[in-house]
Write a protein that binds this DNA or RNA. Sequence first.
DNA 1: CGCTGTCTTGAAAGGACTCAACGCCGGTGG
DNA 2: CCACCGGCGTTGAGTCCTTTCAAGACAGCG
Lengths: 241, 241
Amino acid sequence: MSHPLIVNLERHGPLSDEERQVLQQITARVVAYRPREEIVAEGSTPSHSSLILEGFATRHNHSADGKRQITAFHVPGDFADLHSFLLKRMDGGVGALTACRVAQVAHGDLREITKRYPYLTRVLWFTTLVDGAVHRAWMTTLGRMAAGERLAHFFCELRDRLETVGMTKGDSYELPITQEELGDAFGMSTVHVNRVLQELRAEGLIASHGKTLVIRDWERLKHMGQYDPGYLHKDQKLERD
Amino acid sequence: MSHPLIVNLERHGPLSDEERQVLQQITARVVAYRPREEIVAEGSTPSHSSLILEGFATRHNHSADGKRQITAFHVPGDFADLHSFLLKRMDGGVGALTACRVAQVAHGDLREITKRYPYLTRVLWFTTLVDGAVHRAWMTTLGRMAAGERLAHFFCELRDRLETVGMTKGDSYELPITQEELGDAFGMSTVHVNRVLQELRAEGLIASHGKTLVIRDWERLKHMGQYDPGYLHKDQKLERD
DNA sequence: CGCTGTCTTGAAAGGACTCAACGCCGGTGG
DNA sequence: CCACCGGCGTTGAGTCCTTTCAAGACAGCG
């Protein structure tokens, strides 16, 4: 069983034995969460960052009037709140969608990394920048695309992200996200999510059996969601030196 | 005339003389842009990052069908694309709203900083994380708030950001942003921006004379936009050691 | 077997968009 | 010095997307 963080970071270039060892060490403390459980509370100031090892998680902000905006979905290998290392105060919370195993990385350990391992620092920084790029892609769908296009875009994005961690089976993958959560992520009511999903199914773009999503026409889905995976910077190499 | 970047970074803790000197050096190359001019092209791979010294700039993504989403407004002291240091390929472009003076910081210099100046590295990383926090705040307004509330929120945010760089005069500030641009930023048509602004004025929340925005009732504007400046992490201190 | 969370459906109301036209103002060139 | 031009702001009317409210169907779980 390979370490999901190491696998993720090595997509951008090889790590030294020492670096791999450091990553092993700082991710040694693992905690389990049940479905729906809160991992990091909105407004809290954790002293560690949470790395998802198994399961799906969300990041979400609540507006003052109680509405929820989901700002990110996280899959194994993702740091859900690496930003809390420097930002300290969580502007949004992190929650488990399914049962999760999470490594807690002490902020002190991360600070040590910035002192001793410049390359590791840059790759970690890099992952937070990709996070921002995904935010911008979502903003673009939220602000300028129709409801169905937003969902199409997301299903494409999630496919690519799950594929890199080996969690797709051909054209399908597990999507443990309710319609309410999709609505909270993409700015639509649950009812409307439901109707739009029906259209996507009727169009022959997707199908779903239980929690499994099947992509029936990748090309048309991609086209509808105007999906271009560049912003994920999946295989972007970083200079070691 | 103090250096806007140094002032900005020192809000989070004092810099050493050496660090200040390094920052001076790497921001020595300055370029001027005219209003509307493109600073960094979408899809390009610049070898430097752009620091706004004077003027207003935007970051924007275009969807495949030509619509524009503005993902950020930048004011003096902001790095518009520090992320291009590691991400390389620009997922969105940077453009001048007004005449701008911009310092071009070579990516090579930034890499050197990650090797020699861990604290400086952390503060710079920090600024990109705040950028992400602002993205999340915008996503929340885009997905879950009404049109008028989104604008109210933004006027509050911009006030606070301009205040920290001394660009407010009491309750008012220069807002060199057209209604079309506001629409592209907050997911609404130009026509609708116009009507919503009229409502904000009629409600006595704001007034505008030419390009000057006057906040006439801060408390109510804040309340309407559900504005809580925490996500800007304005005076968050970072540990030097 | 009943409960609860999730999905689905229908109908009515409302927010936002599009299209189209007009007014205003500063800049420019004759 | 004035008339024209273009960018920006403003208005009106009709349409459509999305929401809200309400209720029923379904499925997994204890």
